[in-house]
């Protein structure tokens, strides 16, 4: 008895529902604006967090696949022993080349980075050269870097092996941390947005209570009475989501261009698919917040 003709009913009612939605948004313009802005802020933060995390993951991956491994030779090794070690490593499978940076060279480079220091650097740093000899090992295949690094670690002639992994570990720790903070901030703003939308809808329910009373009296279905309010919430959320998508999209584009022209070594994610997914996600997120806000305020009334 109730499913019959629901489509026709919806069609006949769409004009009414649309009019009511516009009217309610006009009724409380400031509250509507506040709702839209909070939705927007929460989603902008969400959007940038996603892009940041995507970039961090991408960075981690590209550093992981760096071909170079830094292997530090035991400090007491003589130059001859270092040469032996170098040729020994050159023979290892998967190694493309080995370059030696001697401790003297390292000290000199260090001195250069200090710039100002004139006299004897060795005496400046305490009489002995603190730097070890370093072998820069280049792998033939990025896939091999990790295996190669671990086999180098077991070489008694080397006391430390460094490759992208170190940096990656730190980066991952940081992104983990950021993920929680981001989650917290997004959740806080999300809750605020839902509450504001819910207040917005509630006020409109209140200002239309006579009309609603009569609608119930003449047998308007609950869903018919709810639709304008639900759509109002959805519309507020969607507008917020749209602004957020535009801000995140334009902002990210700008940052990308800036980073690529100044920090050329940083790999920046420019993924059309991710871009579209994030935009759609933000729109959807806005609508979900709007729907939640409406549902919270409609839950209590319209029982019968």
């Amino acid at each position: 008895m109730k499913k019959k003709g629901d489509m026709a009913t919806m069609l006949n009612s769409s004009g009414y529902i649309f009019r009511e939605t516009i009217n309610s948004m006009k009724r409380n313009p400031w509250l509507s604006l506040a709702s839209v802005v909070t939705v927007m802020v929460s989603l902008v933060i969400l959007g940038y967090s996603i892009f940041f995390l995507a970039n961090a993951a991408n960075m981690a991956k590209s550093f992981e696949s760096e071909l170079e491994i830094g292997a530090f030779v035991q400090i007491e090794y003589t130059p001859e022993e270092v040469q032996d070690l170098k040729s020994q490593i050159e023979q290892m499978p998967g190694v493309e080349s080995v370059t030696l940076v001697t401790k003297e060279q390292a000290l000199e480079d260090f001195g250069k980075t200090l710039g100002g220091s004139q006299g004897n650097i060795v005496s400046d740093v305490g009489g002995t050269n603190p730097f070890p000899d370093k072998l820069t090992v280049k792998a033939t295949d990025p896939q091999n870097v990790k295996a190669l690094a671990s086999s180098l670690e077991s070489n008694p002639g080397l006391y430390k092996v460094r490759y992208g992994q170190d940096f990656v570990d730190q980066l991952l720790k940081f992104t983990q941390w950021l993920r929680w903070i981001g989650f917290g901030v997004v959740a806080a703003f999300g809750v605020a947005a839902v509450v504001l939308i819910s207040i917005n809808v509630k006020m409109n329910v209140f200002s239309r209570r006579r009309e609603i009373q009569i609608m119930k009296l003449v047998g308007a279905s609950n869903s018919f009475i709810r639709w304008p309010f639900l759509i109002e919430g959805l519309a507020l959320g969607l507008v917020g989501g749209t602004f957020a998508a535009v801000i995140v999209g334009l902002g990210y584009n700008w940052i990308t261009v800036y980073v690529q022209s100044t920090l050329t070594f940083l790999p920046v994610v420019q993924n059309e698919v991710l871009f579209r997914q994030v935009s759609m996600g933000l729109l959807l997120g806005g609508m979900v917040m709007g729907a939640l806000g409406s549902l919270f305020s409609l839950q209590k009334f319209l029982r019968a």
Binding site: I214, M215, L217, A220
Partner: peptide
């Protein structure tokens, strides 16, 4: 219990409008 901002016609038609009559 009439709606003050609707005309006579609208007040009466309202009962049909809100149950989805064309």
């Amino acid at each position: 219990k009439l709606l003050p901002n609707k005309t006579v016609f609208e007040n009466v038609g309202f009962a049909l409008e809100v149950i989805g009559v064309a």
